[in-house]
């Protein structure tokens, strides 16, 4: 029996979704509550119980985070979008396997990372066809133009372009550990390898990234204007 069905773990829940109603509200102890006010666990539980909308809300809440992970791990917007599609469908269908003691974001994150890694592995199998370089498309998809200051976008693109140039295993480890803040042990569990392997991939990945991103540091130290992303990538 799944955890959510066990009354021992959970008091009788008072919220009753009004499925099919026009407004995205559910009745909560008598008072209408919007999905925004429900936490991740509640949204997921409603989804498992058959609510058709709560999963969409859950994903909407975390999609920028998940996009960041996918685009950094895969380097290509098209690939990242495909990986997220696979990940969200998988999460939708496997929601009842979620164990209530974990954080929903951790669970979702892991599914996204695994979908990305699956794509990387499949790509490695047909390694003969390298991905097309399309800097303009990458720039366009790295974020809506109006939302972020130019230097934020530029720096973001620098990192994305630099990450793209290193080995995919090293990139995945670095994204998890350095960028997403996972511990070595957590990253090892997600990547399904030994902690020592994660450490070594991170170390070698950093060594490769350093010359690609060194202008960050020089600009920070000497106040020299930053090079453009294109120049930076050309350094080698």
């Amino acid at each position: 029996m799944t955890a959510h069905l066990d009354p021992g773990n959970q008091p009788p829940s008072p919220d009753v979704p009004r499925i099919g109603a026009d407004e995205p509200v559910v009745a909560h102890a008598g008072a209408p509550v919007s999905y925004d006010q429900l936490d991740d666990h509640e949204l997921l539980r409603l989804h498992v119980a058959g609510n058709p909308d709560s999963f969409g809300f859950l994903v909407k809440r975390h999609r920028d985070r998940m996009w960041a992970v996918a685009i950094r791990t895969l380097g290509e917007p098209e690939e990242a979008a495909d990986a997220l599609q696979e990940a969200f469908i998988s999460a939708f269908r496997r929601a009842d396997s979620f164990r209530g003691d974990a954080k929903v974001t951790t669970w979702l994150h892991r599914i996204v990372v695994n979908a990305c890694l699956d794509r990387i592995r499949r790509r490695q199998v047909r390694a003969a066809d390298p991905l097309p370089e399309d800097e303009d498309r990458a720039a366009e998809l790295a974020g809506p133009m109006q939302e972020d200051p130019a230097e934020v976008r530029e720096r973001r693109l620098d990192v994305l372009n630099a990450l793209k140039q290193i080995n995919e295993d090293q990139r995945a480890a670095l994204v998890l550990v350095d960028m997403e803040g996972y511990s070595i042990e957590e990253a090892a569990a997600i990547l399904d390898c030994a902690p020592g392997t994660v450490k070594s991939r991170c170390a070698r990945g950093r060594a490769k990234l350093l010359p690609l991103l060194r202008h960050w540091q020089t600009s920070r130290e000497s106040d020299v204007p930053e090079k453009s992303a294109a120049e930076a990538v050309g350094t080698e």
Binding site: D64, R65, W67, A68, G143, P144, R156, V159, V175, M179
Partner: peptide, 14 residues
Amino acid sequence: DLADEGRADIPMPT
């Protein structure tokens, strides 16, 4: 620096 950059979400394109 990677950690700093990592803390920022990237808005998902519309």
